[in-house]
Design a protein around this nucleic acid. Structure first.
Length: 426
DNA sequence: TGCGACACATAATC
DNA sequence: GGATTATGTGTCGC
């Protein structure tokens, strides 16, 4: 039994079991040994974070297994998050409602706009202040750490961009993959349409893919292939047809300037007290995006049945599927059998993600530097040596994102750093 | 100057 | 309804 650090305490046995399954999935993906071309990112992605992980408190064996453990723990988290919430709008204090209303006029509201004075702001919120007063203060009020207000829909993603074509194995039909994703926490708009996040704060993102004109049954009934660019010593030498073992979704960040590929880190709910790891790569089957409220409701759940319900939304239970279609798993000859675990994602959910502290976030002049988040659909294939490796099939990306650093100037609306107009309560 | 670490505070969750 | 948890952010000191 592996140790799981402090997170373990919050888990039910069910969670642990599910986590093991998911971890198995990730271990397979993460054992991907060699990468090509644009996948070098993934390579460094994984390696970098292995070395970067400060909290290897588990008695891990070698790197790969460490990573496995990381993924494991990470997924325990995911298991923890479950449903329940609702439009808290109805039960939030009047003043807050007004604030929110105001904010929504600017799409996503400022919410956690950090303010200077801390405590008095909370006081205003919790009781004594009039709505008017709150409105006036809203620009400098910050949202409390656990406030559900922190969940806001972020910027829309681009249309799906294709990198490698996908074909049906049976009839060579060209298949059109569609990626969807949404940021559910951590970004808000400035007045001029820029999207702003805070380096110190978490963001949440969900993603799913589908194949055009393929419902789930049709997906299951088919196998797919693509082409990998073959190269020798950096020289392109054509393409090889390769069967896609299974699909996976990953999240990467890119910078407008340099190529900082390793710029995301994920925490556990324990944050400083827990381990950190790169966002996982989710083996996934086609799925439908959950709505914002569902994602919101899925966070920080510890109740077993709630977790279970959430897992039904976010994960595909292969065993259950075999059972319902009365199929012997040993006789499965579909793409499903290639997936690396019994816990396969319908929806890739990335929670508690932050830009790594190693990234530089300066933003004195207007357009100095920005980031974009990219959700990628990967085809996991085997190369000549039967080594598993991912091929980038398609991707979507956010518009430019401003990530505000830790500078105090970013935490005082009076010192307008350029994008705080929306915070003002008038 | 920016960052790791620690600390405080507070809504969500059970 | 009290205890615990998760997390925005204030702060210290390198």
């Amino acid at each position: 039994m592996m140790t799981m650090s402090s997170d373990e305490t919050a888990l039910s046995p069910d969670d642990a079991a599910a986590a093991v399954a998911v971890a198995a999935a990730n271990s397979a993906v993460n054992s991907i040994p060699s990468l090509k071309e644009d996948d070098h990112q993934l390579h460094s992605f994984v390696n970098h974070h292995q070395t970067q992980n400060h909290h290897q408190n588990q008695n891990a064996l070698h790197q790969q297994q460490q990573h496995f453990l990381q993924q494991h723990q990470q997924h325990q988290q995911h298991q923890q998050h479950q449903q329940q919430h609702q439009q808290n709008q109805q039960r939030m204090p009047q003043a807050q409602q007004q604030q929110q209303h105001h904010q929504q006029q600017h799409q996503q509201h400022p919410g956690h706009v950090p303010g200077i004075g801390t405590n008095h702001q909370y006081d205003l919120l919790t009781g004594t202040a009039t709505p008017e007063a709150d409105l006036l203060e809203s620009g400098s009020r910050k949202v409390a750490p656990r406030s559900s207000d922190l969940f806001k829909v972020g910027p829309p993603f681009s249309e799906t961009r294709h990198h490698q074509d996908i074909y049906c194995k049976s009839n060579d039909l060209d298949v059109n993959p569609i990626l969807e994703a949404r940021i559910d926490r951590g970004f808000e708009t400035g007045e001029n349409g820029t999207w702003i996040g805070y380096k110190r704060n978490y963001f949440t993102l969900v993603a799913a893919f589908s194949l055009e004109n393929f419902d789930f049954d049709r997906f299951i009934q088919n196998k797919f292939y693509t082409f990998e660019k073959a190269s020798r010593n950096g020289q392109s030498v054509g393409e090889n047809k390769v069967e896609i073992n299974y699909f996976a979704i990953r999240l990467v960040a890119k910078c407008s300037d340099d190529d900082v590929s390793i710029s995301l880190i994920q925490h556990t709910a324990k944050r400083d007290k827990g381990p950190q790891f790169p966002p996982p790569i989710y083996p996934a089957v086609p799925g439908e995006m959950p709505d914002h409220e569902t994602v919101k409701a899925s966070c920080n759940k510890r109740n077993g049945s709630k977790i279970e319900n959430m897992n039904k939304i976010f994960y595909f239970d292969r065993s259950d599927y075999y059972h319902t279609v009365n199929l012997d798993s040993m006789k499965d000859d579909t793409i499903l059998k290639n997936y690396p675990s019994d816990s396969i994602s319908r929806i890739a959910r990335f929670e508690r993600i932050q830009f790594t502290s190693s990234i530089r976030v300066k933003q004195t002049s207007a357009n100095s530097r920005y980031f974009t988040l990219h959700v990628e659909l990967l085809g996991i294939v085997e190369d000549e040596d039967l080594q598993i490796q991912p091929i980038l099939l398609s991707s979507i990306e956010t518009p430019p994102l401003i990530v505000r650093g830790r500078s105090p100037s970013n935490y005082h609306k009076e010192r307008t750093s350029g994008y705080r107009g929306h915070l003002q309560g008038h």
